[in-house]
Design a protein around this nucleic acid. Sequence first.
DNA 1: CGCTCATAAT
Length: 749
Amino acid sequence: MASLPSLSISSTAHKIETDSRKLSSSSSSVEKGLSFHRSQEGPLESSTEALQPFEPALYTPLLQRCSEIKSLSAAEALHAHVLKTGTHEDLLVSTSLVNTYMKCGASAHAHKLFNVIPQKNIVTWTALISGYARNNQADEAVRVFIQLRESGFYPTNFTLGPVFNACSSLYSMELGKQLHGYIIKYHLESDTSMGNSLCSLYSKCRRLEYAVKAFQRIPNKNVISWTTIISSCGDNGNAELGLKIFHDMLLEDALPNEFTLTSALSLCTETQSFGLGKQVHAFCVKYGCESSVPMKNSIMYFYLKSGETKEAMRLFNGMETVSLITWNAMIAGHAQLINIAKDGASAQRSGMAALNMFQMLHESGMKPDLFTFSSVLSACSDLVALEQGEQVHAQAMKTGFLSDVVVNSALVTMYNKCGCIEKAAKAFVEMSSRTLISWTSMITAYSQHGRSIEALQLFEDMRMAGVKPNKITFVGVLSACSHAGLVKEAEHYFNMMRKEYKIEPVIDHYACMVDMFVRLGQMEEAFMFVERTGFEPNEIIWSILIAGCRTHGNMDLCYYAAERLLEQRPKEIETYVLLLNMYLSAGRWQDVSKVRKMMKEEKIGSIRDRSWINIRDKIYYFRADDRSYSWSSELYVFLENLIDKARCLGYIPYKDANGSEGEEEKISSSAVHHSERLAVAFGLLNLPKEAPVRIVKNISMCRDCHSAVKYFSILTKREIVVRDSKRLHRFRDGRCCCGDFAHWLRLDG
DNA sequence: CGCTCATAAT
């Protein structure tokens, strides 16, 4: 008795199957649906006849159950039953079936059925349209909507809603405006959900102004209206406006919910409104809104970006559900922290955290996406973590993400920043498509490696490929010219930038030009260029000029530049050291005390000379004259020995060149061995023979160390890469790719 | 009808 209905349906389904319709004979899902039904409804129990028609209304909950469990076979079985019993003439049942097929993802079934329904009403049409919209067939949804219009039906708010969704995913402003027209035409302007849809649509078409207007015109704004416009502001890059509207919302006593608060908090993160963010967090706790996964992600990311890493980690560890968004937020957040860290050690910690998170993500079995790979590669770049970077590369390849242009560009940059120009070039060549950024990355990479000709050739290739350069591309191009002393080419490209591409030069472009004249020793040309172009030199450009004047012995221009620089009140400690050294060696004591006074006023502390090296999964961190390791004395023996050998080859240490009584000693006193020497020596000792040594330094390399490391590269026949705060140095056979443009500084330890 | 992360070039 109890199994009767399912038996009857399953046998009917079988008959239809022989009618060559594509049907599944499995009825277990139908049984589930029916038992659900039976337990609530009495009448079925007593219906003993197979194929006795149900009351039309009885199909509805059954079909609903099919939708819930997404069982197409169950829906088909019910459809069969409906046909057999003649209930298909009931429009409500047919419409429900269309709806159910759609919800089971069977758009084609739904449309076929729709076509044979003789007397359709607007609800039937709506079922089809909303189904297409839900199944990500936006174009179909719009097509049916147009047919509906041609059939003379009047869409309701229920019809237009899905069309709006479809339109949003097509990003069609054209269609959006038409829909706006329909809202007016069909007098749906007072409908809140229509207003919300319109607002959302304009936002997705990246027209925030229209979205705001649509929002303002909603007469009865609900929490969705507010949330839509607040998140729209964020999506369209106007977080401040979003926060202002959030504020308005609170003033109007509208109550935000977890959706609103999630969006609002993300705006606080974006605008770095840490105080406000904490208030929003408190609000969440007060209203019990802190439990959803998106909310938790948002809170965690907020603390991470606020620099409260520990709190972010605590929240992360307490999350029972971790989504890919959670992982990506943690990885990207930590990767970004590397660049704003106040010192090398905390940069290291952030970078390692990003890499660890990536490893944990991998172990959790979840699949990384484009964002994950791009972020983690960026962390590897900043850490000069080549080994890890190569592992990520392999993983990206295995999972098919190497087809993504952003991941590939990140790869080019990773190899470049690790000093592996050949691998960067290989990654670039193997890309299936290239964007402006891909080209720029590679041009810049060549330029930084001193491969000016290749950089310029690639720039021409880029133009041939029809890709329009931007100002960053030109920084790469001009610095390539400067590097190789190609004055004519530099002027050619400088003019091209302005005339052909209408890009007005910024300070970085001028810096390249000045740098070029200085490298050539043409100090007067350098100053004339500044004069002629009439831009106001910044701290960097004055420093280049001063350093150049010192090297080329043009002291009048040097003092002139130094005075102009001091008028600007420099901010960088390296600039002050440059000035102090210059005045000290010239014996200009008044100027020395003037600079020292200014340093005090600007709260410029002492310089922290730090370097580190990655060996396998460990980081070894060095200060100047560092003796903190148990093996430090061995390292010094090795280093001194190396220096002695370098001397034999012609290396003149700074001390010898300047005499131990030299005045410059006063500010460069204690540091006999700068940190990079220790890190390099450690690498030479501990890495496999012939393996390149890659180290990172937090400030510019000084000229003395630069010279020493050149000799080390000859003596050991090893490649040595030093990435300092300003540029990349790759030493091979006594030469460096920077073209010997190391800083002229000798700094405090 | 509304939510979280959002990556690559100086």
